[in-house]
């Protein structure tokens, strides 16, 4: 009962806020609704007993990815009038694409529901989520894990190659050098005769 109520509540919020992501006029609000969507999805994960996944979703997507989204959206100077100009022009094309996708979804959905249905696998065992993850992630899926790491590395190299500019003649702070200064290297004693200046 409680589980059912939670499920429908979370599912409703997830879908409603996902709709609002697209529908809302202000991109910052869109991101906010996106966060709500992520949250509800995390809640659904918890209902399935996948607590680890749920918290990971919150940590990675809400805690990091959406913050960066927000960053970009806030910094962008979006001109809505300009953005809306091409709207009518693209509408028919978008409509056709949406229609095709909708038809496909209905077809697929119908095929799914008319076929034999399988119950969702929920895990309830002795070991915690985390242990189960570790057991398959570093054995059966070790290759994917490593290869995905390499993909991220490539993305990182790309970001650095495209943005890092090494300029010559830039003064940089060298903290070890600063801290390593002694009285002898830092202070020079000068005898100045009156009226002469350091010169």
């Amino acid at each position: 009962m409680l589980v059912a109520i939670s499920f429908y509540l979370l599912a409703f919020v997830a879908i409603a806020s996902a709709f609002m992501v697209v529908a809302s006029r202000n991109p910052v609000h869109s991101v906010m609704f996106l966060i709500v969507t992520f949250f509800s999805a995390a809640g659904l994960f918890i209902l399935m007993g996948a607590e680890f996944l749920a918290l990971l979703l919150v940590m990675v997507y809400v805690g990091a990815v959406a913050v960066l989204f927000l960053f970009v959206v806030m910094m962008l100077d979006v001109d809505f009038v300009e953005l809306k100009q091409g709207f009518l022009q693209y509408l028919p094309f978008g409509f056709v694409v949406a229609l095709i996708l909708l038809a496909e979804m209905i077809m697929v959905g119908a095929a799914y529901f008319t076929g034999e249905t399988k119950a969702l696998a929920t895990y309830s065992g002795e070991k915690s989520n985390l242990e189960r993850f570790g057991e398959v992630l570093y054995t059966d899926y070790a290759f994917f894990f490593e290869a995905a790491g390499l993909v991220l590395l490539v993305a990182m190299i790309g970001a650095i190659v495209l943005t890092l500019r090494e300029r010559d003649g830039v003064r940089k702070q060298d903290i070890t050098k600063q801290v390593g200064r002694t009285r002898e290297t830092a202070i020079e004693m000068v005898d100045i005769e009156s009226g002469q200046g350091v010169g």
């Binding site: 966060i35 680890f52 919150v58 915690s128 989520n129």
Partner: peptide
């Protein structure tokens, strides 16, 4: 069971209060 992760997740949300307030 995943208390540590929970704390990390929630504290990573704390940033929203500040970033939204500023914006």
């Amino acid at each position: 069971n995943v208390g540590v992760l929970y704390v990390l997740a929630i504290s990573s949300l704390g940033v929203y209060g500040i970033i939204i307030g500023g914006w």
